[in-house]
Design a protein around this nucleic acid. Structure first.
Lengths: 252, 252
DNA sequence: CCGATTTTGTTCTCACGTTCACAAGCTCCT
DNA sequence: AGGAGCTTGTGAACGTGAGAACAAAATCGG
């Protein structure tokens, strides 16, 4: 997304180990589908089977896999275990990534407890919060530590991924501290746009945005012709005699 | 995403009230940026200002806004309140949407407490869980109710949006019940691909997928030339002498 | 009133992503 | 061995999205 890219504009040089971003975003889905098939004792699957399990169409799946190499067998399909390992390796979840979670409110709590998080490949090494009242609390087998310890922890445990679950207010500051400490990938749950220097990847998960996108489509469905018909305010300046107050969701 | 679309393939008919999906996904971001500007007492903003606040470039922002109509003033910029209202109306958050949350585990708890959820426009009308041990528990000013009451609640409160925060296992069944009850938009936090009939929109939020995408880029950065170099397993069948076990994250 | 300045709305071009369609390649049966 | 039947991998067509660039419209100063 916010990949700091130095993409060569010129020729159709596609060979440079470049997997399209859209494909990267689907690889984890394929990985999960393969794991499910494997758990069901299925050893071989066609692109059609896999595509169904992953919720995409088979042409797209085949093209996606073709970026990784030629791991299938024509006339047969894909060996589930083999492909699973290749995708896992490509994504990088064959090694362990150390993760810190900053901001142990409701959401931070939930993530700390979330076992599915412990999908092998990721290891939560610290839960941090600046609030002294929270520091020391035990969650599962971990203890909340002071945010001030961030730098030590990042260095000692080679942390490369940070998860921000603070309110919107402190999020940018937390982000800056993470980056300064050496974290180069950030997953942000706070409802703000964070700015980071080149070389740092950032992804955002935003509940209220997702809901609003659903609302948009929902409105289309129910309304269709019955849209509340533009209350077309005549002039632009000095408008708003009782504009319904509508928050954008910045509130922490 | 999984929009059941009856898009006319033929001519360049663009006028049919069709806002590109990519634009729809950004409107909530603009809405939030406008709200922030408004809270800071800023009455007018140029596309440049807005773009900065929203984390996009100004050309894209202007093009996005142009799909809604001509709400700016050349040489001046946009009236913050006016534009905010227009976007809110377009998205549909000027009206109230009733929401149910199904699955009151860690994440469900967190969402139930999440005040930023109460971004005007969305109203949680029920917290549901099938576990009798949870039913009756109070969370904030709400009480967890039995999943069996779903149909009644959906009908009585005109619920159109459902949030699934169950483990992967029961998610599809919960989804089917929601759809059968009349819910036409679903936000899914369970790590599975849900299938829904045409006409139902579904969006997915998946922590472990986001982490894996970050891991992929992270691997590129640190490794670059030092990639663990393909352990190219010689044949395909009968491979796997000790393949590192790598979960895809289906585990509930 | 006119020209300079600002900023929008839009057009054009290019890059990216998706889907189709089919040749290449593998297995199995006769 | 040879042909029938599948299924992959990919080339080509199509559609969507992004960004540069500019004409059109508004304000402001003289």
């Amino acid at each position: 997304m916010t990949r700091a890219s130095s993409r060569r504009p010129g020729p159709p040089t596609r060979t440079e180990r470049g997997i399209p971003e859209a494909t990267v975003a689907r690889l984890p889905v394929y990985l999960r589908a393969l794991t499910a098939l494997s758990d069901n004792g299925i050893a071989t699957a066609s692109s059609e089977d896999l595509a169904t399990a992953a919720g995409v169409n088979s042409a797209k799946l085949r093209k996606d896999l073709s970026y990784l190499g030629s791991y299938g067998t024509r006339g047969v399909g894909y060996d589930v275990e083999y492909l699973r390992y290749q995708i896992a390796r490509e994504i990088g979840v064959t090694q362990d990534w150390a993760v810190v979670i900053v901001g142990i409110g409701n959401l931070g709590h939930a993530l700390a407890n979330y076992s599915g998080f412990g999908t092998r490949g990721f290891r939560i090494v610290a839960l941090l919060d600046a609030d002294p009242k929270l520091v020391g609390e035990r969650i599962g087998d971990m203890e909340v530590r002071d945010f001030a310890e961030l730098e030590d922890i990042v260095e000692r445990d080679r942390v490369s991924i940070g998860v921000i679950t603070t309110p919107a207010g402190p999020a940018q500051e937390v982000c800056d501290r993470l980056v300064a400490a050496g974290v180069t990938s950030i997953l942000n749950f706070a409802p703000v746009v964070l700015s980071v220097p080149d070389g740092v990847d950032i992804r955002k998960v935003d509940l209220s945005i997702e809901l609003q996108i659903l609302a948009y489509h929902e409105q289309r469905k129910s309304g269709e012709a019955a849209l509340p018909q533009v209350p077309e305010l005549p002039t632009m300046n000095g408008l708003a005699p009782e504009l319904p107050s509508v928050g954008g969701g910045v509130g922490a």
